[in-house]
């Protein structure tokens, strides 16, 4: 019982959980973490392959979303739909003139 209290608990506290690590990794993409947190995270990553993969995948996801942002000007709208939109615009302008 005592062993549990004396060793288990401090060990658990020192070992950052993957839940915490992935949370910090997410946050670190957008803001600077404190020196201690960065160090603690580094230690976790040294021993955790899954979180190391998670970190890599986060980087790749940012890359994907950057590309997605830039792809906005490559999209083409259906010509029929465009014609509909223009028709609606013309109608509104016409009605304005009448008023």
């Amino acid at each position: 019982m005592n062993i549990k209290k004396q060793i288990w608990k401090p060990a658990q506290d020192f070992m950052m959980s993957c839940e915490k690590a992935t949370h910090l990794l997410t946050k670190a993409q957008y803001q600077q973490l404190s020196f201690f947190k960065r160090l603690h995270l580094r230690i976790h990553l040294l021993t955790c392959e899954a979180c190391t993969q998670f970190a890599k995948q986060l980087k790749y996801l940012s890359f994907i979303f950057d590309k997605l942002k830039k792809s906005a000007d490559k999209v083409k709208l259906d010509e029929n739909y465009k014609a509909d939109i223009q028709e609606n615009i013309q109608r509104i302008i016409q009605n304005e003139k009448k008023d």
């Binding site: 792809s71 906005a72 000007d73 490559k74 999209v75 083409k76 709208l77 739909y81 465009k82 014609a83 939109i85 223009q86 615009i89």
Partner: peptide, 12 residues
């Protein structure tokens, strides 16, 4: 507008 901007707006 539709001709010049709707593609881009939709893409965005």
């Amino acid at each position: 507008w539709a001709q010049e901007h709707s593609d881009y707006l939709y893409g965005y």
